[in-house]
Nucleic acid binder design. Structure first.
Lengths: 207, 207
DNA sequence: ACCGTTATTGACAACCCAGTACAGAACCAT
DNA sequence: ATGGTTCTGTACTGGGTTGTCAATAACGGT
């Protein structure tokens, strides 16, 4: 009974996310978002409540995508848990894809965890952003910890190791590759870091 | 023969660095820097060439401080290299101090690697910042790698491990703690992560 | 005590930005 | 076809930002 919106909200949020990723929050103006998405000022305010609203909704979408990745890749039977962990680690250091059907990132600079980047920039003065970033960390951390436990049950990881400690460490490494990898390091180097980390996981001492 | 400047450049750059750390580059105005340092606009432009100049010089100072830390803590005889690595790791995850006589940081949020934070925010469009950040990474990485080699010579680390790979991994972990630790995680948690990482270092298999 | 040189201060002008308001367009149900 | 409702684009405004300029103050050599 009324005029339908002529854009796809997800597409708009993806474009905005890309913009925020490359220019930062304070570095992108509403006009930048407008240009990147094709929407006019008015539509942006009506649909997303302005710049800050766009950011929050873009981060929420990112969170949803982020949650699916680890859960799908890491969940499963105890058997093969270590392999899943390996595969996830290699994948994670190369960034979270914008969408399921989109390759992870054009350049690694823009692939760094969106939530972490926004949190580092404005999280100190923006509790909502801070909370969203923490949620992103938590979902990865719990999924990894669960997978570590599965691998322990299967005898692939030293049962004496604390799965939560390991999960924290792995999360730290993944976030670290965002920073290290964002500038001047090749994907090969990131892969190498991930492999090194995986190789150091505590294996059970067999007999 | 002319009026001397009435401020200490280092003190000004430290204050500016603190401001940049808490508010980000685009989040701090020249007036903010002016208020934080006590200098007027004109003096800032005359002495540091404006906001961007202040950032570059503050980062250069940070780089100098950063370089001293690892080198002093990590360099030394082969004997005890592993202990030095351990001590450095524990120290690094709690941030780089503003000055030699100043405690590392009031809150961990502002302690995250200054260079990494600036590089993540504006490095994509600021080659000079990007280069400075890479320099910061390099100095830590090479110092760590050298210490790993020393520990290997002393038989404390598996001689088959690639010291450069390990150094990259450790650098990644340190940078990761900046991100993870910046929001919502206690210093104890960071210490725990550092200890976990240290415990996983590949020891030589003794007979 | 004076004067050249340099720092400091405060104000100013041009510009950019976020958010709002209003006018027009598109759609659908009737 | 028409009308009500919602979307879309643009123009406007108040506030904040940057970089500069001229006037003033402070110092040291002479």
């Amino acid at each position: 009974m009324a005029r339908p919106r002529s854009f796809d909200p997800d597409h708009v949020l993806h474009a905005a996310e890309r913009q925020f990723r490359t220019s930062g929050y304070n570095g992108t103006s509403v006009d930048d978002i407008s240009a990147a998405t094709g929407l006019g000022r008015g539509s942006l305010y009506a649909a997303f409540d302005g710049k800050h609203g766009v950011l929050l909704q873009a981060m929420a979408g990112y969170f949803a995508r982020l949650g699916q990745g680890p859960r799908k890749l890491l969940a499963g039977p105890d058997e093969g848990a270590l392999d899943r962990l390996h595969a996830y680690l290699l994948r994670a250091v190369h960034g979270v894809p914008l969408a399921a059907d989109v390759p992870p990132a054009p350049d690694r600079t823009a692939a760094a965890c969106f939530a972490a980047k926004m949190a580092l920039e404005i999280g100190a003065s923006d509790p909502e952003v801070k909370r969203l970033a923490n949620d992103c960390f938590s979902v990865v951390r719990t999924a990894v910890a669960e997978c570590v436990r599965a691998a322990q049950r299967n005898g692939d990881i030293d049962p004496d190791a604390d799965p939560d400690d390991l999960a924290y460490l792995l999360l730290t490494i993944i976030r670290g590759t965002d920073v290290v990898g964002a500038y001047g390091h090749s994907p090969d180097r990131l892969t190498s870091i991930a492999e090194s980390a995986f190789a150091l996981l505590p294996r059970p001492r067999h007999h």
